Amino acid sequence: MRTPRVVAARRLQRRRERDAAGLFLAEGPQAVREAAAAGVVQDIFGTSHGLTRFADLIAGARGSGARVSEVTDEALAALAETVQPQGLVAVCAQQPVPLRKALERGPRLTAVLAEIRDPGNAGTVLRTADAAGAGAVVFAGDAVDPYNGKCVRASAGSLFHVDVVRAPDPAAAVAAIRERGVRVLAATGYGDTDLDELADSGGLGVPTAWLFGSEAHGLPAELLALADARVRVPIYGGAESLNLAAAAAVCLYASARALRAPATEERSERGAGPTAQ
């Protein structure tokens, strides 16, 4: 049976309804667990099997004030967007962070997704940015909704770990980032700077924001012009190019390694002293 609360939750599958309510759906135990840890869960709907299987998760969410409702398999299937839902769907509060506030926190690594429309790609880049230690991910311009169900699933919980920013004007966002003294690098297959050469020269060891454009159209010319450098990932084999998610992973991890290197070297030097004596 689909109760009024289930019907209301199902409306959140549409962006217009999500934006109006400031809510979204997180599907599956991993996403629900991360959402509960972040304190954004309002309601959890679960089948009898799902509530029993993930009893510890449910108990923790209840302790944080979430309402928990048992629903039929049919009702859960109506809320879920996957073919084989895993028994839990949560209604969560959106928590977008204003760009100004995100920049005030001084992230050393930021990903800017400019006009990226594919939710799977966007969610994967968000997950990769989180893994690489980025502090913020900016969805700029007419980008996909970060609270789109497919994007939420592809992020595998990383949506709740980093500052998620919506910036309607990509150029203004880039300008604001540069004003904070952050180096802006545009990832493009036609870049005049090679990523390996940039890394070898020490050019990645400073606070950096990477610009990524859509897989179909790349970055618009006006954003490329605003970047401090236009960087290409070298292709050593016969592949024509890398897809967006793969290229973003290479770029973000190159920066992550460079940004962590001084601390790693300092720790090594501190540890080497007593051993040498």
Results as ranks from 00 to 15, higher is better:
Arg267Lys: 12
Ala272Arg: 13
Val138Trp: 05
Leu198Val: 15
Thr128Trp: 07
Asp130Cys: 15
Gly202Phe: 02
Ala37Trp: 05
Tyr147Asn: 13
Leu259Tyr: 15
Ala61Arg: 01
Pro262Asp: 14
Arg108Asn: 09
Leu204Val: 10
Ile116His: 12
Val68Gly: 04
Glu197Gln: 15
Ala136Leu: 02
Leu211Trp: 08
Arg260Met: 00
Leu79Ile: 10
Ala156Pro: 08
Val182Asp: 04
Val32Ser: 04
Thr47Trp: 03
Leu25His: 06
Ala90Gly: 07
Ala187Val: 11
Asp196Gln: 13
Gln86Asp: 06
Ala172Thr: 04
Ala263Glu: 13
Leu103Pro: 00
Ala122Trp: 09
Glu74Asp: 15
Asp43Tyr: 09
Leu159Ile: 01
Arg10Cys: 11
Pro29Leu: 07
Ala176Trp: 02
Ser201Met: 00
Gly60Thr: 07
Glu222Gln: 10
Arg153Tyr: 00
Ala114Phe: 14
Ala55Thr: 01
Val174Ala: 03
Val7Arg: 10
Leu211Arg: 07
Leu113Arg: 00
Glu34Lys: 11
Thr275Met: 07
Ala172Val: 02
Pro220His: 01
Gly106Asn: 08
Ile177Cys: 07
Val206Ser: 13
Pro96Val: 08
Thr128Ala: 14
Val144Ala: 06
Arg153Cys: 09
Gly205Thr: 14
Glu179Phe: 03
Cys151Gln: 10
Leu185Ile: 09
Pro85Met: 10
Ala140Arg: 09
Val40Tyr: 03
Ala114Met: 01
Gly135Tyr: 02
Pro146Phe: 15
Ala129Tyr: 07
Thr208Ala: 10
Val138Glu: 02
Ala173Leu: 14
Leu244Thr: 01
Arg153Thr: 05
Ala256Glu: 05
Arg166Thr: 03
Pro168Asn: 09
Cys251Gln: 02
Val40His: 02
Lys101Phe: 08
His217Asp: 15
His161Pro: 09
Ala26Leu: 08
Gln277His: 13
Arg62Tyr: 14
Glu81Lys: 00
Ser64Arg: 14
Ser69Trp: 09
Asp196Phe: 08
Glu70Leu: 14
Gly120Lys: 07
Arg100Phe: 03
Arg16Thr: 10
